[in-house]
Nucleic acid binder design. Structure first.
Lengths: 157, 157
DNA sequence: CGCGCAGCTTACGTTAACGTCAATCTCCTC
DNA sequence: GAGGAGATTGACGTTAACGTAAGCTGCGCG
């Protein structure tokens, strides 16, 4: 299960994300390489199984349109998937991720809703910063242990 | 399940950790406040249930001695527990944590074993640094979203 | 036409990390 | 010595996030 070699390809650049179409006014028509994807395209690109994508759909994280029976994913679906996987990597549950993605989709929500969204985002940011502190602590602990081992080895010579 | 209010009290200071008695040559006798703990002491202190502590014992993460039938935890057990919870917070599985704790217990292991330990520690550090990067990415993403919401709100006024 | 591959649905299986409950057991205290 | 507060050992239940297998459909191809 820990065999993830970071297969998500995302090179730098001001790509403006295909998401946030609810907020961002500039989402006119930036045609990238591809417009639509089939289930195995995304599965391969992100190193997950097709089952996983169907499962995410069941959880309402994705909502690809159908062509007959087949699922057709848009660039927006792809962007959402990328965020889902990022969210997972940093420890959010799928349910939490869904809630956050919903915030992206507020669209022309009312000011109250926007305020709620802003607050939620800040909360999540807080949590992540706490997590980062925990990780720094853990790194420090491991480095301490590592140094002690190194010393031990040095003494042996 | 996400109701953790960070109940583990650990204020700053060069406390040298009760652990690493396998490596650290200086673990003579630094008497703190308490020597032993009962199951509910630790449970309360770290905000976990007694069941959790018994479960960790079953997984060989802890090995308190017995007094009659009751479990008696040493300061070392307490330190191990602290590391277990830290490890969990940063995303290690209990099995991975056990493996890492075992490295602490190498004692006067042979040079080969020490070398293996050093390598493992470095690997874990690498993983944590990757996780840190992911978290930074996620924070950036959330802040971007947050800003867009803020702008939207500003436009409204 | 038969084949194999993709995809779909339905549904049960799995793993980790505990929760929950029942049945003692033991030690105090009144 | 009856009761209650905590501890202990099973044993079964639970949730999340998929895995896996069965059985169906549609499609291109030699």
């Amino acid at each position: 299960m820990r065999g993830n070699m970071d297969s998500a390809g995302s090179r730098r650049g001001p790509v403006r994300s295909d998401l946030a179409s609810g907020f961002d006014p500039e989402h006119a028509s930036g045609d990238q390489t591809k417009e639509t994807f089939r289930i195995r395209d995304l599965a391969r690109e992100f190193g997950v199984t097709a089952r996983t994508l169907r499962f995410y759909e069941e959880c309402e994280l994705l909502a690809p349109r159908r062509e007959g029976q087949d699922r057709i994913y848009s660039r927006r679906d792809r962007a959402r998937l990328k965020l889902v996987l990022l969210g997972k990597k940093v420890g959010f549950s799928l349910e939490e991720i869904r809630a956050m993605l919903d915030l992206y989709d507020l669209g022309d929500g009312q000011a109250t809703q926007l305020r709620v969204a802003a607050k939620r985002f800040q909360e999540q940011i807080e949590r992540l910063k706490n997590q980062r502190r925990d990780i720094d602590t853990a790194i420090a602990e491991l480095e301490r242990a590592s140094e002690i081992v190194a010393q031990r080895l040095a003494e042996r010579s």
